[in-house]
Amino acid sequence: MISVQGLTKSYSGFLAVDDVTFTCEPGRVTGFLGPNGAGKTTTMRVMVGLTPATRGTTTIGGHQYQAIPNPGRHVGVLLDASAQHAGRTGREVLHLGAKVMGLPDSRVDEMLELVSLSQEEAKRRIRNYSLGMRQRLGIAHALLGDPQVLILDEPANGLDPAGIRWMRGLLKGYAEQGGTVLLSSHLLNEVELIADEMILIGHGKIVARGDKKTLLADAGGTGTHVTSLDNAALRAALTAQGMTVAVAGDGFRVEAPPVEVGKVAAAHQIVLADLRPADGGLENLFLELTSQTQRDQFNEGATA
């Protein structure tokens, strides 16, 4: 539905986006993940015609964005929730959007309800909105025209955990109805929660893509967190199998898949209190893949 082919954008010699190619399918939420300055926003801006591409093409639904008549009816866009006139009320912003798109004003109330902004809040001016409220308003604005495609830049930024859960439900529901979603984030946790599929970008280049499982498999195995009633025996058993075991919290971190750890425990009849894949695997992968562009150097793996 969204197709990006060989997209390159350079600013006087600096390559902000370097030969990026990907597609986003209907019915799926695609997460665009990368550190700040990796080229996510630039890619999205090119998609919606705000920034001209140096090379390459982007199409949405088979069309160049500029060629879509009344694009708000087909593509919902949220590039920056704070990019609104601070002196306007939330309701006024939605009203203006509805008017441009030729929608009835009743749509404004529907959208306010959808994103849980009260009538009272909608009457306030945007300068008095929290970032979370701005994001909700931005989502409402993107959904106004009942589009088939959503392009959202850092939509979860500023949302509290409940807000992120709400957005996950909203976007999943939207995708299940056949919608296409592309959302960006610099936070792995957010994307992991919301997206079906991830595109990792660093230094303007795509460094990895796939769903969480594929990414982890590509990264070469996963770690496991394990805690048992007899940690000493478990450690001995695991080490005997040649697994690397390190103390982590109440239990261990083992460099082996959970199934293998479980098998060892079962063989030695050790009761497990906790067994789960170590998420740090993905986090490490993310940091590793994008490390050339990170401003901070990580010498001892991820602790985030």
Binding site: P26, G61, G62, P69, N70, R73, H74, G102
Partner: peptide
């Protein structure tokens, strides 16, 4: 019958342009 393939296209023929008066 749209969703499903990567070739899914919008039908924009039914969408009129934004009129100048509205702008």
């Amino acid at each position: 019958p749209a969703p499903g393939g990567s070739h899914a296209r919008f039908d924009v023929a039914g969408t009129p342009r934004i009129t100048f008066g509205r702008l």
